[in-house]
């Protein structure tokens, strides 16, 4: 038996969700920070970068750039969903459905691009055990992609729910968008730190 949910109760539940999400994102941020720190340490300790005897991965620029665009588009889409959801406040909204669909497309594209990148790298002989640079590229990309996948797993049921005409609470949309933004920020750091710097 579920309690009848008043608007007041919704607001309280959303505030509680917001606190929980903040704590959860803090923990996730620590994980990304630690992984990136590990990259910084191995890079700083290396005599040069790429290390002697290794070369940068073959030019795969279009792919990480495409992944970056997909990540940013996804963030923009979930943010649109959040704003539309805040206006609709628990009522099913076409705008929310459209925005979440766009986010799902962006998310799937992001994962597809990452897989294409790994396949492309492997075909040119660059595998995770090929060297330190390859270690960093694969480890950071795979670790990040798993979190992007988690975002999609959370997004899926929400999209189905809103597509069936059932509303989403503003709190759940805020939680989704916060997670998505953090994963996007983490990708930007991976992109800038590994492929640009």
């Amino acid at each position: 038996m579920r309690a009848p949910q008043s608007v007041d109760g919704d607001a309280r539940a959303d505030a509680t969700l917001s606190v929980g999400m903040t704590v959860g994102l803090g923990a996730l941020g620590m994980t990304f920070a630690a992984v990136l720190l590990a990259y910084v340490v191995v890079r700083v300790q290396s005599l040069s970068w790429p290390p002697p005897g290794e070369s940068r991965p073959p030019p795969i620029w279009p792919w990480p750039l495409g992944a970056t665009l997909a990540a940013i588009s996804g963030s923009w889409a979930v943010e649109s969903a959040r704003r539309a959801g805040a206006r609709a406040a628990g009522v099913s909204s076409q705008k929310v459905t459209h925005a979440l669909t766009a986010a799902a497309v962006a998310g799937v594209s992001f994962i597809a691009i990452q897989i294409t990148t790994w396949v492309g790298l492997a075909r040119t002989g660059v595998r995770p055990d090929s060297g330190l640079v390859a270690s960093v590229v694969y480890a950071l990309m795979i670790f990040h992609a798993l979190h992007a996948l988690a975002g999609l797993v959370v997004l899926g049921p929400m999209l189905v729910r809103t597509a069936r005409g059932r509303g989403l609470s503003p709190g759940s949309l805020t939680a989704l968008s916060s997670f998505w933004h953090l994963v996007t920020i983490a990708w930007m750091m991976v992109f800038l730190g590994v492929f640009v710097a």
Binding site: V35, A38, Y138
Partner: peptide
Amino acid sequence: AAGAVLLFFDRVLGTRF
């Protein structure tokens, strides 16, 4: 968890952290 993930990659994928 980050240490465990990188150790897992080292063991399973052959990365060199």
